[in-house]
C-alpha cells in the first residue's frame, strides 16, 4: 500500500458563488525531464521497491501492492 502522508493543513470553507475556472482544452502537464537526465542513487528500500515495480510488475502499482500484501 502507498504510504499516506498526513499533512498539517486545514483547507478553508468554499467561498460562496465559487465557479471553477475553465482549463483550456489544450493544457497538458509539462513533459518530464528526459530519461537519463536524472539517475537514481542505487540505495535504500524505496529504490529496491522501484526496481521491483519496474522489473517484476511492469510499473503497475496495484500488482506490486498485491504482491506485498
Amino acid at each position: 500500500m502507498a504510504t499516506i502522508q498526513t499533512l498539517p493543513i486545514t483547507a478553508p470553507v468554499l467561498p460562496k458563488g465559487y465557479t471553477p475556472p475553465a482549463a483550456s482544452s489544450s493544457s497538458r502537464l509539462s513533459a518530464p525531464h528526459p530519461t537519463g537526465h536524472r539517475v537514481l542513487l542505487p540505495v535504500g528500500q524505496a529504490h529496491l521497491n522501484h526496481l521491483k515495480l519496474a522489473l517484476h510488475h511492469a510499473h503497475d502499482f496495484d500488482s506490486f501492492d498485491a504482491h506485498l500484501a
Binding site: S30, A31, T35, H37, R38, L40, L55
Partner: peptide, 12 residues
Amino acid sequence: GGKGNEVQATQR
C-alpha cells in the same frame, strides 16, 4: 555500471 537507474523526473 548497473542499469535501470536512469529515470524520467517531473519538471514542475
